[in-house]
Design a protein around this nucleic acid. Structure first.
Lengths: 225, 225
DNA sequence: CCTACCGATCGGTAGG
DNA sequence: CCTACCGATCGGTAGG
């Protein structure tokens, strides 16, 4: 069953007339707004209480809807969770790319592997711990709820995300700056970073920049070169 | 309401007579068996499916009980979870101490900080990934379910567990073998280790010894000395 | 520890 | 997107 577009204009539509060209597809725009609101509320509640402990009624109430209405936007509760994760991963990927591009553009010469890692770690902390960043923790801690097909969809994005890291870690290992088996080193690095979702408090003693510096000091040795 | 001891002997009691001194408190012994069976089944199911997704009926069925019977042994579902975590933490602590004592006894001279860390990491992997080791992953991933009082009880054990690590990490940092802020380094180290509960498969390519070696190679630099 | 049961909650739907 | 509703499941209990 697909979600059909609403057949009628809501009668609480804004009274103010649109100037200039007509608002295209007021319904669609509203639809997008409500859908986005649901995703944001779901991400926050899923993170705070867990997927199972959050009822679709909780989510509906958080955005001022009645209990049945979320199912107008999402086929079921699982699909809502999958959408939270996919959007989170897509945004994380976009953010990572933007940060890398900006760093490359800002640097006078080519970036060292060390500099690349700094950018990747810093943007990872943004994605994990920054404002409005519940999506990724939800992905990390509610993974098992997804169906196999949903996992595959999110995994495609995760692969893209990790693909940026691999050559950087390889280069660091070649330089002797990173020890251990590469695959396990990567998993442990992500573990160290992702674990911060469990203990980091934004107003605490350390900023995300501080975390980033500590990460580099902890994981990198002096290069051979 | 407290769980009262059963007023009657179960009539499926073993027919064989006890020789020697009478089995003291046959009920108690049986009680312990059933309680232990519930804890094991609960740990396994909580880990596989999550706390909320596991019904007390699932747990009862797993040990051959009817739906209401777990509540003879545990006041409620939360208390069962708390017991799983407390037992897991207590056993982990015992295992850690035994491993350390054995290493000290086996060594010809005093243990280096590096050797201590190796023992601690290795025993941590046992606790996290070894056979019959669902309790600790459950503790890591269902923490938020506990009440404040339950958290406090488990935290006392966690503090004891971590207390063994702190001087070792301090010594390594003094030697220049460990970089970064000490508190954050500790959290990141535990993150790297604990994350393995998400990806490690026992029959896979790496043994727990392999994981331990990679951990040391990844986190430790050459000592200054 | 079982039998029999209850009240509450929940995901989801029909129909507008 | 709301109203009204349903079937299923669940944690937990009384009484033996």
């Amino acid at each position: 069953m697909e979600t059909a577009p609403p057949a009628t204009e809501p009668d609480e539509a804004p009274v103010r007339r649109s100037r200039g060209r007509p608002r295209k597809t007021a319904n669609e725009r509203d639809d997008g707004n409500r859908r986005q609101a649901l995703l944001r509320a779901a991400a926050r509640l899923f993170r705070q209480q867990g997927f199972d402990a959050t009822s679709t009624r909780d989510i509906a109430a958080a955005v001022g809807m009645r209990s049945g209405s979320p199912f107008y936007h999402f086929e079921n509760k699982e699909a809502l969770l999958a959408a939270v994760m996919e959007e989170g991963m897509q945004r994380a990927l976009d953010h990572q790319r933007a940060r890398m591009d900006a760093a490359v553009a800002a640097a006078p010469g080519p970036l060292s592997a060390r500099d690349c890692l700094r950018v990747l770690v810093r943007s990872h902390f943004d994605n994990l711990l920054g404002p409005e960043s519940d999506h990724i923790p939800v992905m990390l801690y509610e993974w098992r709820v997804l169906s196999d097909g949903q996992k595959r969809a999110v995994n495609r994005l995760k692969d893209d995300y990790e693909a940026v890291w691999v050559p950087v870690l390889q280069a660091l290992q070649r330089d002797g700056a990173l020890g251990g088996d590469l695959r396990i080193a990567r998993l442990m690095l992500f573990g160290a970073l992702n674990w911060a979702a469990q203990w980091y408090v934004p107003d605490g003693r350390a900023s995300l920049d501080d975390l980033t510096e500590t990460t580099l000091q902890l994981f990198l040795k002096e290069s051979r070169a």
